[in-house]
Design a protein around this nucleic acid. Sequence first.
RNA 1: GCUACUGUGGCUCAAUGGUAAAGCACUUCACUCGUAAUGAAGGGAUUGUGAGUUCGAUUCUCACCAGUAGCUCCA
Length: 581
Amino acid sequence: MAKEKINFEDEQIKSNYRHTTSHILAQAIKNIWPDAKLAIGPSIKDGFYYDIDLEYKITDQDLMKIMKEMKKLIKANQKLEKFELPREEALKFMDEKDEPYKVELIQDLPEDAVISFYQQGDFVDLCAGPHMESTGQIKAVKLTSVAGAYWRGNEKNKMLQRIYGTCFPTQEELDAYLNKIAEAKKRDHRKIGKEMDIFMLNDVGPGFPFFMPNGMVIRNELENFWRQEHKKHGYEEIKTPLILNEQLWRTSGHWDHYKDNMYFTKIDDEDFAIKPMNCPGAMIAYKRKMYSYRDFPMRIGELGQVHRHELSGALHGLMRVRTFTQDDAHIFMLPEQVTDEIIGVIKFIDELYKLFGFKYFIELSTRPEDSMGTDEEWNMAENSLSEAMKEIGVDYTLNEGDGAFYGPKLDFHLEDSLGRTWQCGTIQLDLQMPQRFDLTYIGSDGEKHRPIMIHRVIFGSIERFIGILIEHTAGKFPLWIAPVQVKLLTVTEALSDYAYEVKKKCEDAGLRVEVDVRNEKIGYKLREARNQRISYICVIGEREEEDNTLSVRSNKVGDIGTLQVDEFISKLVEEIKTKAI
RNA sequence: GCUACUGUGGCUCAAUGGUAAAGCACUUCACUCGUAAUGAAGGGAUUGUGAGUUCGAUUCUCACCAGUAGCUCCA
């Protein structure tokens, strides 16, 4: 039989390939540690894993040992053979093999399910398949890490050891993949954030980031832009307090559903809470006066700083912190305005994400277990979200049971450098707060009615958004956001006057500009400026001074030659104006 | 929070049961220089915190704190 090339473009084949490799991993583990209990071992996005229960703690060194054993099994080119057993026999079979997790898995299968096994050599695993024909087809394998994972993803269950790995049909593809990971790590926002002096974290406040001057430029540019765009889209802005009394949080339902994530304090013996969300404050703001149906839709924005006690193990640079600023807004509206408002927000988010060149996906999260309200309300709310998406034809995935406690939501996810996704934008339909706070408006009939409310963010959290932006651009920000847009480097000290003259011109045009007139070699200054990822680096020598020019290098396209000073400035001003990426 | 691992000057990192090496950065001096590091000198660390073992701990043990990866959770 001719050797067929494995088509990795085919997702099914890729998945079979990796799934088979996970079986080989399991077999190798059983060979080395016969008392290991097997849990599950699926193929995943970039490879596969296998969860095992084993007294002995597997170390990184052991991974080498396991790989060696796997290579042996691959070389043996064992056939993978499928067989089926009736439920009772299957249970007995796994029980005899002393595999309690497999027994549990079989018990949870439907009564009439066909229970299949795959056998390779003397190793048998409960598995629906499909698989490759033989272990010899697996070529390039790499075990990447070992980590803990709860049995069935439930933190109340035992923690198992999870071994992650990946595999490819050729060594070249594996190397390319590993290389890609290494490159991606160089874009880590924590690394670049430190190198570019954007933000810092310190033991004095785990999860509470400090923003440095460069970071504040980015923040302020984003916030200014946010304000400008929201004004255009018919929003007004408010600011509500960080600390509000405990009674408010009881009224809002946060006390019952979110208390464990909140920070509390006392003022004059009275109990107060630090806000984990902005909505209750916005409710109080709404209630300050009476409204007519003619006031709707009413869009109220707030850049609101919230504090949430996230689990220590979940903290991650700027992506997951304990205090962050939400670019929040609450939209109050009539029932017949709901669809249009949701569509408006979806389009608004799309507009902004596109401006940065982000790809994203949308997830519809439905009613969670711990939630407020009736089924009827939830169905109505979930339907209006999916209807709005249907109407403008956007794709989304369903994430059942992951909504907020007060309503379903559409989440917008962005990717970081390693392909991990982070929720940024969200649109949440909230039927609970208006009730709980007894919000009303006067309808055309002269009677009081309850408004419908949307709660939404676009950046999500300014901090997380900046983190994503750093990784997405590798620190080479769009010019309008860049902390330092121009750096002027002099070849000799005699050119300082000209450099300062150019600097003045740049500043007058509104550019963020620095000069480096130090008595250093041009190569040295250039290297430093490039490491700082300055957008435009201009070298100034005698020639430039004479001709009133600059020798310009862009951090995105490289050397762009000699430009007249005025020409250079107007080019940058235009680039800022168009917010080019 | 859970599992595993890690914690050495501002940063990157070496080494050791006998109080710690190097580079970058910083300061000073010399060099006045054309597209990724000029040379020299100098200052800077009780090795995350606390306790224990030991004649002696930064190294070994324990607890705590923080970080990393994954799980769980989430903007």
